[in-house]
Every structure is written in C-alpha cells, then in structure tokens.
C-alpha cells in the first residue's frame, strides 16, 4: 500500500506537470496593454532602449532570428518596413529571442554576420537571458508587436505577422503591419489588430 501511495504521488505530479506546460503559452501582452521598455545589446555592442528614441511615435518590435526559414523569408520585407516608416516615426527594432545554447546559428557573432550580409538598417538585439520575449508573450519567429507612444507609455496596437503570404511576396494581398502603421499615422482604426502565421518556436533550454 505504501508503494502504491508513492507511485500515485509520482503519477499525480507527472499529470500536473503535463498540464502546467500547456498553460504557459497564453501569457504576455494583449492589444491595448502597455509594453515595458528594455535595454538589450545591439550587434554593434551598444545597448539599445526604446527610451533612446526621443522623437519616435512608436516602434515596430519584431522578434526574429537567424535560422528560421520564416524569419529569412521576411528579412527583406523587414528592411523595407524600416525604410518606409523610420522617417515617419515608427522604426523597426528586431530582437533575437533564441538562446544560442538551444539554437545553432543564433549566437551573437552569427547575428552580426547575418545583419551584415543582409544590410539590416535597424537594431538587431540579443535577448540576453531570454527575459524580454516572455514578457511580450512572443511564441515564435517572426512575431511582430507594433507599439504606439501615448501620454501613458507604449501601447500595444497590433500583434501578429507581417503580411498574409510569407512564401510569396508577390502574392501578398494584405500587408498587416504596414496597414496598421498607416492607420496610426492617419489616426484611423487598425482593421486587423491580431493576426496569425506559421513560425518557428522560440528556442530555449
């Protein structure tokens, strides 16, 4: 009977653990929440915070990485977003949320290389200790959080994907992020505030 009790306890613990794992995905910011600033190391070894951008009206924060094919398919489009909206007050800030110990090719030196090869026009920050992405609730790469500055802080205006066709840029019919930033610039309403797309899970140990 005693062994049975012990075995039961083990099984109960196993079941409880199994269920708690499932619950971790739904945390993080929702549209309308205020996002915290961060201070993360950029590929040029300097620390970057959103507070550094005094004139910005907001930010296109994109969790992305080096090795995910979906991230790679969007690299040129992320550069285009930055080129289009930096001057209008909404620069791109890219953050690599992967732990390099769990994700081959996502180490800092490889990030520097990738940014160099692709000619990134925006900061590409390393999420040291993987502390920022869980706060935001990012689950995959790429994962976009559009933030809009108001009197109270940085309000989350949009969460999701960049547009509606990762694989074929020519067949994109809705550019979600572009439309959302344009809505902020013109004072209009954002039509799609939450969108979904396939992406790579964020890698941690």
């Amino acid at each position: 009977m005693k062994t049975l009790k012990i075995l039961s306890a083990i099984l109960v613990i196993a079941i409880i653990t199994a269920f708690t794992i499932n619950n971790t995905t739904s945390k993080g910011y929702k549209v309308g929440d205020y996002a915290d600033d961060f201070s993360l190391k950029n590929i040029d070894n300097k620390m970057v915070s959103m507070a550094d951008y005094k004139d910005a009206k907001g930010f296109i924060v994109i969790f992305t990485c080096n090795q995910c094919p979906y991230s790679k398919m969007y690299e040129n489009r992320i550069i285009a977003l930055d080129n289009k909206f930096k001057s209008k007050g909404y620069p791109v800030i890219a953050i690599n949320p992967n732990d390099p110990a769990a994700s081959l090719g996502d180490d800092f030196a490889s990030m520097q290389q990738r940014a160099e090869i692709k000619g990134f026009t925006f900061p590409y920050l390393f999420d040291e200790g993987q502390k920022v992405y869980p706060k935001y609730g990012a689950t995959k790469t790429p994962h976009v959080y559009l933030l809009n500055k108001d009197s109270e802080g940085l309000k989350v205006a949009y969460i999701g994907t960049i547009d509606n066709n990762a694989r074929n840029e020519e067949k994109v019919s809705v550019s979600y992020v572009e439309d959302a930033v344009n809505a902020l610039l013109t004072g209009g309403e954002i039509k799609n505030t939450n969108t979904k797309a396939i992406g790579c899970s964020i890698k941690t140990l």
């Binding site: 995905t25 739904s26 689950t139 992406g199």
Partner: peptide, 11 residues
C-alpha cells in the same frame, strides 16, 4: 485559428 483558436502558429 480554425485548427485551434489559441494556436499562435508556432511549430
């Protein structure tokens, strides 16, 4: 979303 409303699309 049709497969599951809470799926973010992460694999």
């Amino acid at each position: 979303s049709e497969i599951d409303k809470d799926w973010s699309g992460s694999l």
